[in-house]
């Protein structure tokens, strides 16, 4: 009899949980919709295009299956462009990290006009790429460029150097200008981390007999390892996909020596009017970028 008299709540826990779940779905719906519109739809469209032959001016489309991919992977253009992309990415990334960390260490010290120096250092990063490239092309111009002029005046060279028209100069110049343009990103991230390293650690290390180099390797670097990993990953992805700086500086030349994968995609889509091939290149690039993030994600998961 007692069981019959047991009080029952007006709403069961299951019903409450269902109501909460519904509210949850409603709340994340806007985000899901926007992400679908700006990420999922273009992604699906690209994948769809990559399986077709598409003539860019008319967008006339015919089914091609995997033939675009077959053509890309069996031809030489892709592999050459991939090698070029890797040289550019690794070269400019290494310089960015080197300059970035060095500058952050400098700006973290108690130098005069530190606030001013900190803002000035961000300048290249905020400058529009097209402006920066135009200025650099003037600076490097063989007839009236300041760079050649200064080097000749210093007696380092006799005749102007062809900075962008020959190899390996073109690649080296592009890498250095890329490093100049993007190293402030490294500075910002590293400087922020440096300011959180407890000063007591450096004092303890000084008392323990560590010199300045030992303090850098034993205290500063271990503290920076996390942020450097993240910054290197982000910059690697962005450098890998870098288009405007290289396109404006060399246009991919001389010949195709600085033609990285993004430039190939552009050339396929609008130079050769093969939107399907361009899409296939883009899909392959996306897979490569995904592969780059795997070690980082694995490490992040391992740490948790």
């Amino acid at each position: 009899m007692a069981a019959l008299l047991r009080l029952r709540p007006a709403t069961s826990p299951q019903a409450l949980a269902r109501r909460d779940a519904l509210l949850g779905l409603l709340l994340i719906a806007p985000t899901v919709l926007i992400l679908s519109a700006v990420i999922a739809y273009p992604l699906a469209t690209t994948a769809y295009l990559s399986l077709h032959n598409v003539y860019t001016p008319t967008l006339a489309t015919e089914w091609a299956g995997l033939s675009n991919y077959r053509a890309i992977l069996s031809g030489g253009t892709f592999w050459h462009a991939l090698a070029t992309t890797l040289v550019w990415t690794i070269g400019t990334l290494a310089l960015q990290l080197l300059f970035g960390v060095a500058m952050a260490l400098l700006l973290n010290r108690n130098i005069r006009l530190r606030a001013l120096a900190r803002s000035l250092v961000l300048f290249p990063y905020f400058l529009a790429t097209v402006v920066a490239v135009l200025v650099w092309r003037w600076l490097l111009n063989g007839l009236f460029g300041v760079v050649d002029h200064a080097l000749i005046a210093l007696g380092l060279i006799d005749t102007p150097v062809d900075w962008l028209g020959t190899m390996p100069n073109a690649m080296a110049t592009t890498i250095v200008i890329g490093a100049w343009k993007f190293f402030p990103f490294v500075v910002i991230a590293v400087l922020a981390r440096l300011q959180t390293v407890p000063a007591h650690l450096y004092e303890a290390a000084r008392l323990d007999g560590a010199g300045s180099w030992a303090r850098f390797t034993d205290i500063t670097l271990p503290h920076l390892s996390g942020v450097l990993g993240l910054v290197a990953l982000l910059r690697m992805i962005w450098d890998f996909r870098e288009f405007d700086l290289i396109y404006l500086l060399t246009g991919g030349g001389p010949l195709d020596h600085t033609r990285t994968l993004p430039l190939v995609v552009y050339q396929q889509a609008f130079g050769l009017n093969q939107m399907g091939m361009a899409a296939a290149y883009a899909v392959l690039m996306m897979l490569l970028v995904l592969a780059m993030t795997i070690p980082y994600l694995a490490r992040a998961r391992g740490r948790r």
Partner: peptide, 12 residues
């Protein structure tokens, strides 16, 4: 040798 208020142990 010095012992700090925050101990200043090397975290890594």
């Amino acid at each position: 040798a010095m012992v700090f208020q925050t101990y200043a142990l090397y975290p890594h």
